[in-house]
């Protein structure tokens, strides 16, 4: 028997909006520790890892570890029917081939039930080694989204270079080139507006902008984004989910011939 009750239902709505265009079908894994997902996009270039810890739910009952295969587009359609202030409860009986999403309005005067068929998805979990990152960038998530969007109107590949001066995002295309430099800036009124660069050593990597733009769909989840870079390994773009967990996107680099 699985019953997860999330008072801040809008978090689950936002999570689905941020992954439904990157991954079509995925297994949600439920265990005593929490509700998680790990899935690659169809080209195996990007991976999303989601964790919502059990403590973040008002009520978390998971009698045994189960994995539920879902079509994320359909799940997003159902969650779209939940109000932003609704409490969302996810229920599944043992051995059932459906999952039920229950939406309760804050005043409990409206209760909705949406039942979705589960799918068999054979996806293998990848081992993601803990890495020492050469540069860790923490910046306002809206700013990162704006940079990715602006640069993708000029080119389809971005070179992200981190030096002690700051971080530079560069692209080039048919109409010309673009460079955006963000300097470390910690003298801000609110901490979430700071740009922090922890850079044990300079690093420069090349990525496809369309994936980074897809990742920035998670911007509504967090005011800040953490971008961890190391030479020759995938970048991690992480959005914390308020006291519950995180959504992490991994993107393999493009290597200059």
């Amino acid at each position: 028997m699985l019953e997860l009750r999330l008072v801040q239902g809008s978090l689950l709505k936002k999570v689905l909006e941020s992954i439904k265009d990157l991954v079509n079908d995925a297994n949600f894994d439920c265990s005593a520790t929490g509700f998680s997902l790990q899935a690659m996009d169809s080209s195996h270039v990007a991976l999303v890892a989601l964790l919502l810890r059990s403590e973040g739910f008002e009520h978390y009952r998971c009698d045994r570890n189960i994995s539920m295969g879902m079509n994320l587009g359909n799940m997003a359609k159902m969650l779209k029917c939940a109000g932003n202030d609704d409490i969302i409860t996810l229920k599944a009986d043992d051995g059932s081939d459906t999952v039920t999403f229950m939406f309760e309005s804050p005043t409990q005067d409206k209760i909705a039930d949406f039942e979705m068929r589960l799918m068999d998805i054979d996806s293998e979990h990848l081992g993601i080694p803990e890495a020492e990152y050469h540069a860790i960038l923490i910046m306002p998530s809206a700013e990162f989204a704006r940079i990715c969007k602006d640069l993708s109107s000029i080119g389809d590949t971005v070179v992200i270079s981190v030096t002690k001066e700051g971080v530079k995002f560069s692209t080039r295309g048919d109409i010309g080139t673009a460079n955006v430099v963000c300097r470390q800036n910690t003298t801000v009124d609110k901490p979430e507006e700071a740009t922090v660069i922890e850079m044990p050593e300079p690093v420069s990597l090349t990525f496809a902008l369309r994936y980074l733009n897809s990742f920035t769909k998670a911007t509504p989840l967090s005011n800040t984004v953490t971008i961890s870079l190391s030479s020759e390994i995938p970048v991690v773009v992480e959005y914390k989910i308020a006291e519950m967990g995180y959504i992490r996107f991994y993107l393999a680099p493009k290597i200059e011939e």
Partner: peptide, 14 residues
């Protein structure tokens, strides 16, 4: 020309 690498070159199946 930059070549896109795939993630499975970095992350092994468990």
């Amino acid at each position: 020309k930059a070549t896109q690498i795939v993630l499975t070159s970095f992350f092994r199946p468990n």
